[in-house]
Design a protein around this nucleic acid. Structure first.
Lengths: 248, 248
DNA sequence: CGACGTATTGACTCGGCTCAAAACCTGTGG
DNA sequence: CCACAGGTTTTGAGCCGAGTCAATACGTCG
């Protein structure tokens, strides 16, 4: 269901604020932002809705206003590698403009989400006209690249419970200290896939953290009794120290 | 030892040709290229020479003219994750200009190499003046990002011998068919690290390929009796089919 | 309450790691 | 040409972490 354009004053449009806060658009001109926003269409997507498939020619990219979207790649024999799971404020599929106009991964919605879809065309055009936007794109892709480097490192050097602990730490605000309680953001089985392990292994890994890193688990809510104690357990197998800014 | 400027006519300078062939500079203006080349200094580096450390403020980046350079990250407890091992035509450390001026990995020379060092400053300046260069940087980083996505996928979905087979296939020209003999480009222990495994595992993995994918191994020379047979063994656990362009 | 999806637990297998010993290379000097 | 030293690679035995398969427990929604 496609609705009419938002009638809000653009200056206070929350979507504009959200888009502006993304590193890709941070330095773009006001005109660029308005042009892109004007081409956006709200989209309410239910769980399991497929946004696009890897290697599809990219027609649209999406801004996540609320909800969660999974990015993944599928192998010939049916396995899938989860590249990322993203929420509010993240863009999905926008990097197709630098990937020969093709999506480099598939995307599905994993929890009912409010999205805004934008034609990739509009972004392409805007990029040729606003050099600040091209630079923003550069900043944004560079950030993704850094994040992926850490991802690779984690996969090769950290074991299951360390990866889980690392994931938990990244859910906390960067300034966190002492004790904290948090809520797992999506299904444990999806977290497991996101971390490159099976759900049974995730379950056992969490149990292990309960013993070794003094955390408490009750359903989807996790209590960390001492952030630095957990960080110490997790980050010894990691090249950057807590609170690992790059990975957020 | 820093030598005088090359006295070659720039139009036929082989270094210029090499730099131009890099996706980052492919579309840069002739002036940009000349300005950057003029700031370059040849550097003959022996095995084990350290070029820079991760998190160092980036002063120089390097063009590999010949030889091999290892990019890696080191953990607190002394383990290292090899991000990449690169040779002729590749740039090392250039992406610092989009990473807050810091190197995101360490780099050492692993086989006697001819390098050219360039001040990062010069690249920064050039980028602000030549929009085509900024776009080239974008293209280049985007390519790295795609490559890393595949890397992550391989790490989570392929077993040791499949990763080895994949590595072998990527050493071949993209058009390869039938039977081929190739020469491993650097030490087996380094290849192992590059593929995220121990050298013993590499050794056994290669032995396994000998049985299952009909390859022959004699020292550093490897004979593949049928490229597609090997590809079939390797690529079933992979989301893109042979000859996997993106990973090169 | 019952039913369905999700999560946990148990028993087992297997791949990759560890540690140690043997084999293989490569270069050096007698 | 051979002997030897140094490094690299291979092989072997044993262990441990993660995957598999199957059964059980938990939660939530009708």
């Amino acid at each position: 269901m496609v609705l009419a354009m938002p009638t809000l004053d653009l200056a206070t449009d929350p979507n504009k604020v959200l888009l502006e806060s993304h590193s890709m658009f941070a330095k773009a001109s006001a005109e660029t932002l308005d042009k892109i926003l004007a081409a956006g269409r709200p989209l309410l997507a239910e769980k399991n809705k497929l946004l696009f498939l890897q290697d599809d020619p990219a027609e649209y990219f999406y801004l996540v206003v609320s909800g969660w979207v999974k990015l993944f790649r599928e192998t010939l024999d049916g396995d899938e590698a989860v590249i990322d799971v993203v929420n509010t404020g993240h863009l999905v599929g926008a990097s197709a403009v630098v990937d020969d106009g093709q999506h480099s991964a598939s995307a599905t919605v994993v929890a009912t989400s409010n999205l805004i879809s934008f034609p990739v065309r509009v972004l392409e055009d805007a990029m040729t006209q606003d050099p600040a936007l091209a630079l923003g794109m550069l900043t944004s892709i560079a950030k993704q690249r850094r994040k992926q480097s850490r991802e690779i490192e984690g996969l090769t050097l950290q074991n299951a419970s360390q990866r889980i602990g690392c994931f938990l730490l990244r859910l906390l605000p960067a300034t966190a200290e002492g004790s904290h309680t948090l809520h797992l953001p999506y299904d444990k089985s999806l977290i497991a896939a996101r971390l490159g392990m099976k759900s049974e292994t995730f379950s056992r890994g969490l149990a292990r953290l309960r013993k070794d890193a003094d955390i408490g688990v009750k359903g989807a809510s996790v209590t960390i009794s001492d952030v630095y104690f957990l960080a110490n357990y997790v980050c010894s197998a990691c090249s950057n120290d807590f609170p690992c800014e790059d990975l957020r």
